[in-house]
Design a binder for these strands. Structure first.
Lengths: 220, 220
DNA sequence: CTATGCTATATAATATAGGATATATGATTT
DNA sequence: AAATCATATATCCTATATTATATAGCATAG
């Protein structure tokens, strides 16, 4: 029987708030009043404040002493910084862990991507394949610090992505671009040659930055 | 007149505890009992807990629900992971910000390093020159995410360094090695050529990892 | 007689409620 | 119009209550 893990209030509220911020239910600059949140969650102020302290460390919330908390803003330069980090970390991680990628993961992922090609309006499928592909390329690295760094950056990217997706309505043209790049990466992974994976991933990330920036500019 | 910034209790305690952990006053596995700390700082439990939550995000403290907090342990593999991150991030940061390094910083730093050569037992001078040199190479990068990542890693490295220093008693031979590597880096920085800086820094970091690992093994 | 499992107690973390404190806002005075 | 003061609101901290975990003692089975 699986052990029942009782999460503390702090952690439950942390996870809940993080989810709400990452999917933009709480968008940039949203004021997070402690008392109101405490009421909503049916708890007192303290565990809410502790959750906010953790979210500040994650870079998702800004805490001003005696003034309160708000969801961090997204500026255009943040997009550039996030993708600069992705370009630095992810190709390296992929290279270091390529041997550990389970070749059996590839076929079902590839199948889903082909399925997406025939139903390009399925945003959920689009997002889930993207997440699975990128996780495959770093989740097997041994270095926990590297993994944590990539996770942190992916969190920030995810906020922006949802934000940007909304604006572009994901033109079919864009989806097909991404599909092609994903299939390229899978092909390279199948070969087992890091000198093929790295450029394919770099190309995909560089294009992703461009797509995100133009989507964000349209939005404003 | 400069505005007086009143730090919250949470932040004061966070900074104080971080300092104590980083200089190994609170060594690995030290139990951090909330009530005792609250007494010592003359405050109640809440701000202490909030400080511990932040320290957990920094990777300096481990929080087990309903069980308490302890200073994270240092394992040999952590040393390898930390230096792997340093080798990935710092040469890149140096390359990206080399143009922004103030050439006027170089002469006084170089002078202090030469001064160290004549008094190799001055541990304080050794540590401060090392910090200044490495900060010079990343502090001017624009990308705040990259800077934060390096700061995080440096924090962890600092804990281990103090730990390791204690054990080796810093043989003069080791000090002279480091001095030579530092002077190489400064020379490369002065040339303004990233293709000279990067290998000099990589060489220094790789040796630093070896020195740290052997010091740590002696300790145990 | 030893080992295992259960129960009662002690200890420490966690959450609540309330009060102290800092900041922002709007009115009043110069 | 600028500055000062009073008031309101929300954060932050303290004190207390609650809850979860660890420890020691006792009972029971092998």
């Amino acid at each position: 029987m699986k052990k029942i893990v009782t999460l503390s209030m702090r952690e439950q509220i942390y996870e809940a708030l993080k989810g709400l911020i990452l999917d933009n239910s709480y968008g940039p600059k949203t004021v997070l009043a402690i008392d109101r949140l405490a009421d909503e969650f049916g708890v007192s102020a303290t565990p809410v404040r502790e959750a906010l302290v953790r979210l500040e460390s994650d870079g998702l919330v800004e805490l001003i002493p005696n003034r309160g908390a708000q969801v961090t803003d997204i500026r255009e330069e943040d997009v550039r910084y996030i993708w600069e980090m992705r370009l630095l970390l992810e190709p390296y991680a992929a290279r270091m862990s390529l041997d550990l990628v389970d070749q059996l993961e590839l076929a079902p992922l590839e199948a889903d991507i082909h399925r997406l090609a025939s139903m390009p309006n399925d945003t959920g499928l689009y997002v889930s394949t993207d997440i699975r592909l990128h996780e495959m390329l770093y989740l097997h690295v041994h270095n926990e610090l590297l993994k944590d760094s990539i996770r942190r950056i992916h969190q920030m990217a995810r906020r922006i992505r949802f934000f940007a997706e909304h604006s572009t309505n994901l033109h079919e043209k864009v989806i097909n671009e991404v599909i092609e790049e994903h299939l390229d990466i899978i092909g390279a992974v199948r070969s087992g040659n890091p000198d093929l994976v790295e450029p394919a991933l770099r190309h995909h990330l560089a294009n992703g930055e461009k797509r995100t920036l133009s989507a964000l500019r349209l939005e404003r």
